[in-house]
């Protein structure tokens, strides 16, 4: 029974990883950039939900919507200001800029809201039993919202015109723009959706681990990126799979081996996956063209 309990915990945290990994994978698919600032958008999302629930007294639902919108705007602004001018520059410049943006966001929040962790308000109390397993409502809510968003995202990418444009741009930016696709707008939409998902991920994460501090996003974001790489970067089902693998691996390690070893095992999985299949579990192997 304990095993199933841990599995559910793993699925819960894994679905949050998956939400954040989706943002990484979409952005990487379209502009080939590891958006280091993505992790910090998680933190921004958590702070927005925290303030809107505590100071403004809004319910969780409205707060999440607010966080989604504000973080989507933040993501677009970051892309426009910091990444867009470097689209043709060497990769390393864009990566260093992304690191710069990440440190900038962390430090702005640290200086404005103090580095100490703040308690996150309780979202819903209680739990329910299935057989002999106890599932808290927070866990159920996390899994529910994540699955809903993933289905929604899959529909957007596969069925709508915007989604078609995204897939076209990620395949070949030049050809897409020749076909009349507004590349800049498509990239902005990608950043908006990715950042919004990160904000929701942040809020759900904070509901499960109710402490918010300016540096919470760095490690969490890194693990989510690792999830995206494990699943195969650029692939949406891959990101979901990677997130779930990460979450389950983490909760199993905590339960059965040692909580100190979680990070080591998680990053170890990354190294093993990259050694065996460098493009990730569901990734395509792309040949480099001259």
């Amino acid at each position: 029974m304990n095993f199933i309990q841990q599995l559910i915990n793993g699925l819960s945290i894994g679905s949050v990883y998956a939400l954040v990994a989706l943002g990484y994978t979409m952005v990487y698919g379209i502009v080939k950039l590891i958006n280091f600032a993505h992790g910090d958008i998680i933190m921004v999302g958590s702070y927005i939900v925290l303030f809107s629930m505590k100071s403004a007294g809004f319910p969780f639902w409205i707060s999440i919507l607010g966080a989604f919108t504000l973080c989507a705007i933040l993501g677009v602004v970051i892309e426009r200001v910091a990444y867009k001018p470097l689209r043709q520059a060497p990769r390393i410049s864009a990566l260093i800029t992304a690191i710069g943006v990440s440190i900038l966001i962390q430090n702005v929040f640290m200086l404005s809201f103090k580095p100490d962790p703040r308690p996150f308000p309780n979202v819903i109390d209680g739990n329910f039993g299935i057989g002999s397993i106890n599932v808290s409502y927070t866990t159920a809510l996390t899994i529910g919202i994540s699955v809903l968003l993933m289905i929604l995202l899959q529909l957007i990418v596969k069925k709508t015109k915007v989604g078609k444009a995204m897939r076209a741009v990620s395949e070949d930016e030049g050809a897409a723009s020749l076909m009349g696709i507004n590349v800049n707008r498509t990239i902005s939409i990608t950043f908006a959706i990715g950042s919004g998902l990160a904000a929701v991920g942040g809020a759900l994460y904070s509901a499960a681990y109710p402490l918010v501090d300016p540096f919470m996003g760095a490690m969490f974001g890194l693990k989510a990126f690792v999830a995206a790489v494990i699943g195969g970067i650029g692939s949406i089902p891959g990101a979901i799979l990677g997130g779930l693998i990460m979450g389950i691996a983490e909760s199993m390690t905590k339960a059965y081996i040692s909580s100190q070893l979680t990070d080591i095992i998680v990053f170890g999985i990354l190294i093993v996956v990259l050694l065996v299949k460098p493009s990730g579990i569901m990734g395509k192997n792309v040949k480099e063209k001259v």
């Binding site: 590891i34 890194l222 990126f225 690792v226 080591i264 190294i271």
Partner: peptide, 21 residues
């Protein structure tokens, strides 16, 4: 290119984790 950044970052964390462990 980009994977190296992530892998070395992860490696740094693994090393630190092992030292603590």
């Amino acid at each position: 290119g980009d994977y190296i950044a992530i892998l070395t970052l992860s490696a740094g964390e693994i090393i630190r984790g092992l030292i603590i462990y």
